[in-house]
Simulated scan of single mutants.
Amino acid sequence: MDLPPATSGICSGRVVAVTGAGRGLGRAHALAFAAEGARVVVNDLGVAPDGAPGAGRPAHAVAAQIRAAGGDAVAHDADIATDAGAAGLVRTAVETYGRLDTLVSNAGFLRDRMLVNLDEDDWDAVIRVHLKGHFLPLKHAAAYWRAETKAGRTPVARVVHTSSGAGLLGSIGQGNYSAAKAGIVGLTLVAAAELARYGVQVNAVAPAARTRMTERTFATAMTAPATGFDAMAPENVSPLVVWLGSAGSAGVTGRVFEAEGGRITVMEGWRPGPSADSGARRTPAEAGETARRLLARAEPPGRVYGA
């Protein structure tokens, strides 16, 4: 399979690391970055959809595909939810290509259960791969970019995190996954504020696409008969991710986008709604009356997925 057709070379010469890039969204992102001229570090541990040990070395297969199509890529198959694995991801980029410009964190898996059936191990495993798996690569990339800034080489650095509609609205049967993806949004906002001084922009994308993790949800292809457009193809999400990972996204940071098919939405998140200040402590009954008056004026919350 060839790389996607390049449109502008928007990432020409940039060095991009993509986690979870052996399959699905991460693979689509890696191929799209390579098509736009980036040199790509393709990370994937090669596990099954539930995190169990898997067969094959998908990171090496994707890197080989990029090279066969004339691009430049190197594989990294360590666990980025460990400190050593995350440090090795950044080190691989710097030792192979001389620098790191963009980090795309995408690695993850699912262990869906209703809350009363959710085991502690399933909670820990999903929080670990998604949330810790975003934090550790970010930490090591940020340390590298801070050192570059202190050396007088302020980078044009970009980080793209992967959240989910489950993290923004919640999803029945996915308490662990929803909590992790909501945490990624919080991490994104903090990182955008902390790292701006080092030339780093940090944004998040909440994608909807057909992958191993979502094949049951999107079992039926949403393809427009007239155009053949498959709205659930992971390749639809990648153009936004590539743009956010490029120098062309200058000035965009601390933002969350939804991406599905041909639709891109800027999510506006938590903002103060109706408010009332009594100037004194309320009784519980007074607090309840005030809360009900405010709720009557407030926008209703979005519907939880699966509800």
Rank of each mutant, 00 (worst) to 15 (best):
I172R: 13
I172M: 12
G173Y: 03
G173E: 03
G173H: 04
G175M: 08
G175S: 14
G175V: 13
N176L: 02
N176M: 02
N176P: 06
N176T: 01
Y177N: 00
Y177G: 00
Y177A: 01
Y177S: 02
S178T: 03
S178D: 01
S178A: 15
A179G: 09
A179S: 12
A180L: 00
A180Y: 02
K181N: 02
K181W: 01
K181R: 04
K181P: 03
A182K: 00
A182E: 03
A182Y: 01
G183P: 02
V185F: 03
V185S: 04
G186W: 09
G186T: 07
G186A: 09
L187I: 04
L187S: 02
L187W: 00
T188Q: 06
T188R: 03
T188C: 11
L189K: 15
V190Q: 11
V190Y: 10
A191W: 07
A191G: 09
A191M: 10
A191E: 06
A192C: 11
A192H: 08
A193S: 14
A193E: 15
E194K: 10
E194V: 09
L195T: 11
L195V: 14
L195I: 14
A196S: 12
R197K: 15
R197W: 02
Y198V: 14
G199I: 12
G199E: 13
G199H: 09
G199W: 08
V200R: 06
Q201R: 15
Q201N: 15
Q201D: 15
Q201A: 11
Q201S: 14
V202G: 04
V202E: 12
V202T: 15
N203F: 05
A204S: 10
A204Y: 02
V205F: 10
V205R: 04
A206P: 03
A206M: 05
P207S: 05
P207W: 06
A208E: 08
A208F: 06
A208N: 00
A209Q: 01
A209W: 00
R210N: 12
R210I: 06
T211A: 08
T211H: 10
T211K: 08
R212P: 06
R212A: 15
R212T: 10
M213G: 08
T214E: 09
T214S: 15
T214D: 14
T214R: 10
E215K: 13
E215C: 11
R216G: 12
R216N: 13
R216E: 10
T217V: 11
T217M: 14
T217Y: 00
T217N: 08
F218R: 01
F218K: 07
A219H: 15
A219E: 14
A219G: 13
T220E: 15
T220A: 13
T220G: 06
T220P: 01
T220Y: 06
A221R: 12
A221C: 03
M222Y: 02
T223Q: 11
T223K: 12
T223S: 05
A224E: 12
A224I: 09
A224H: 13
P225H: 10
P225R: 08
P225I: 11
A226W: 13
T227C: 04
G228L: 09
G228M: 09
G228P: 02
G228Y: 07
F229T: 13
F229Y: 14
D230Q: 06
A231S: 10
A231L: 04
M232T: 14
M232L: 15
P234V: 08
P234G: 09
P234A: 10
P234I: 07
E235K: 00
E235I: 07
E235T: 13
N236E: 00
N236Q: 10
N236R: 15
N236F: 08
N236I: 07
V237P: 04
